[in-house]
């Protein structure tokens, strides 16, 4: 049974984003790969062939594209695929130690899945959250930020009980209630957008 057989509306929706041409069909390749991986945890060879047929290309091309990007997997991952950012900004915040701790305490090497099927680990490059280092991503679910030893222990404990905490999305708040930016000292300086003069939405309005 093919994966997309029962998901025609989804497939149609994905194709509708791109031009109705051979090139446009090919554009659906990455979204389709993402669909399969999110559902099955990896993309098998038969799924590659299925996607190739949908996109009007060959399994060779699908594998080639897939292997180019670092977040697609050809092997099954654990239920919780822990991806630790290892690039400099996280490394300066101890990402290497976080990694070593995970590998050691979960007893799982990259490419492996822990015996209970729960965990797999991957070192990844900059996740774009350098202000909240170190950062870890779980599966395709989102970021866990400022993962210090204490927080790491909490997360692992929750995952072992299959209670995945919600991802973090700490938003850097730089603007106070009055719309002015706040210095490190707590002092609000500058002005607020409300003080700026907005141009009228329609031409010919008074200036």
């Amino acid at each position: 049974m093919t994966y997309f057989e029962t998901k025609q509306p989804l497939v149609a929706d994905i194709f509708s984003r791109y031009p109705d041409s051979p090139q446009g069909r090919r554009s659906a390749l990455m979204p389709l790969l993402r669909e399969v991986q999110d559902a099955e945890g990896f993309v098998s060879e038969s799924r590659m062939a299925e996607i190739a047929a949908l996109c009007g290309t060959t399994a060779t091309e699908v594998r080639s594209v897939m292997s180019f990007y670092s977040t697609y997997h050809t092997l099954p991952t654990g239920k919780y695929h822990l991806q630790v950012c290892s690039t400099l900004m996280c490394a300066l915040a101890g990402a290497d130690e976080l990694w070593d701790h995970l590998v050691e305490s979960l007893d799982v090497q990259p490419g492996e899945v822990s015996p209970d099927g729960r965990f797999s680990v991957q070192k990844v490059e900059c996740l774009g959250s350098c202000g909240t280092a170190p950062v870890m991503q779980i599966g395709d679910d989102g970021y866990y930020e400022n993962v210090g030893p204490g927080k790491c222990a909490q997360i692992l404990e929750s995952l072992r009980n299959d209670l995945q905490p919600l991802p973090d999305n700490p938003v850097p708040v730089t603007v106070g209630d009055d719309g002015r930016q706040v210095l490190a000292t707590g002092q609000a300086v500058g002005s607020s957008v409300t003080g700026l003069h907005r141009l009228p939405g329609h031409a010919g309005g008074d200036a």
């Binding site: 938003v171 730089t174 603007v175 002015r180 500058g190 957008v193 700026l196």
Partner: peptide, 17 residues
Amino acid sequence: SAKDPRFAPTLYAHVGQ
């Protein structure tokens, strides 16, 4: 300088609200 009283943040004015 962002401390200039004439400067108001716009791009990030609503981030966090």
